[in-house]
């Protein structure tokens, strides 16, 4: 079961928009961290994902385990959030 979802994004990133559109269409809530507005959180996104790219979607489960999905990757995103 999903407890919460955080998406690291930027103002200009098209793939971030796709992740948000997908979650919205499924009626799933999320928190957004926009790295253009909160640049101090870039290191956090990097540490979680191991890469320097957005979107990074962090799905926290009710047992507090986390699944991190890099990019707009429906094959991983869909099973993680549904």
């Amino acid at each position: 079961m999903v407890k919460n979802i955080t998406i690291f994004t930027s103002d200009t990133c098209g793939y971030c928009q796709m992740v948000k559109t997908y979650l919205k269409a499924k009626g799933i809530g999320y928190k957004e961290v926009n790295l253009d507005h909160e640049p101090e959180r870039r290191a956090e996104a990097h540490k979680l994902s191991g890469v320097l790219t957005v979107p990074v979607t962090v799905v926290t489960k009710t047992d507090d385990s986390q699944e991190v999905i890099v990019g707009y990757n429906l094959a991983k995103l869909a099973p993680a959030v549904n």
Partner: peptide
């Protein structure tokens, strides 16, 4: 790739402030 090598500026530029 994605750890310093990129092909999309609008996606990954924000990491290079």
């Amino acid at each position: 790739y994605a750890r310093g090598v990129h092909f999309c500026a609008t996606c990954d530029g924000a990491f290079y402030r």
